[in-house]
Measured scan of single mutants.
Amino acid sequence: RVIAMPSVRKYAREKGVDIRLVQGTGKNGRVLKEDIDAWLA
């Protein structure tokens, strides 16, 4: 299970990103909004 705040999950869904593919850089591997942006870049 991916650790991410609900707002980040929603952001990823809106961008069409599968959050399971994104490498989290936050505490304990948490996926941050910046990680979604970096994955899209």
Rank of each mutant, 00 (worst) to 15 (best):
R1Y: 03
R1S: 12
R1F: 04
R1I: 15
R1D: 12
V2P: 09
V2G: 07
I3W: 02
I3H: 07
I3L: 05
I3A: 08
I3K: 13
I3M: 03
A4Q: 05
A4G: 06
A4R: 04
A4D: 05
A4M: 04
M5I: 09
M5W: 12
M5K: 14
M5T: 15
P6F: 04
P6W: 05
P6L: 09
S7R: 11
S7H: 12
V8L: 05
V8Q: 02
V8W: 02
V8Y: 02
R9V: 12
R9N: 05
R9K: 15
R9W: 13
K10L: 11
K10V: 08
Y11T: 06
Y11D: 05
Y11P: 03
Y11M: 04
Y11K: 05
Y11F: 04
Y11Q: 05
A12M: 01
A12Q: 01
A12G: 03
A12F: 01
R13W: 15
R13T: 15
R13Y: 15
R13P: 01
E14K: 14
E14S: 11
E14D: 14
E14V: 10
E14L: 15
K15A: 09
K15N: 13
K15V: 11
K15I: 07
K15H: 15
K15L: 15
K15Y: 07
G16P: 01
G16A: 07
G16E: 07
G16W: 05
V17K: 00
V17T: 03
V17I: 09
V17F: 02
V17R: 00
V17A: 04
V17H: 00
D18P: 11
D18Y: 04
D18L: 06
D18R: 04
D18M: 05
D18F: 04
I19H: 03
I19T: 03
R20G: 09
R20D: 09
R20H: 13
R20M: 10
R20E: 10
L21H: 10
L21D: 10
L21V: 15
L21P: 02
L21C: 08
V22Q: 01
V22W: 02
V22N: 00
V22D: 00
V22M: 06
Q23Y: 12
Q23D: 09
G24S: 05
G24I: 02
G24T: 03
G24W: 02
G24Q: 03
G24L: 02
G24A: 07
T25C: 04
T25N: 07
T25V: 03
T25W: 03
T25K: 06
G26A: 05
G26Q: 02
G26R: 03
K27D: 10
K27R: 15
K27N: 13
K27G: 09
K27C: 09
N28A: 14
N28R: 11
N28E: 10
G29T: 04
G29E: 06
G29I: 02
R30T: 12
R30V: 09
R30M: 15
V31H: 02
V31T: 06
V31A: 03
V31S: 01
V31R: 03
L32W: 05
L32F: 08
L32T: 14
L32C: 07
L32K: 08
K33T: 07
K33P: 06
K33F: 09
E34H: 15
E34L: 11
E34D: 15
E34F: 09
E34P: 08
D35N: 07
D35Q: 01
D35R: 00
I36T: 00
I36D: 00
I36W: 00
D37Y: 04
D37R: 05
D37L: 06
D37F: 03
D37T: 05
A38H: 15
A38L: 14
A38M: 13
A38F: 14
A38V: 10
A38T: 15
W39V: 08
W39E: 04
W39S: 05
W39K: 04
W39L: 08
L40Q: 05
A41R: 15
A41K: 11
A41L: 13
A41S: 15
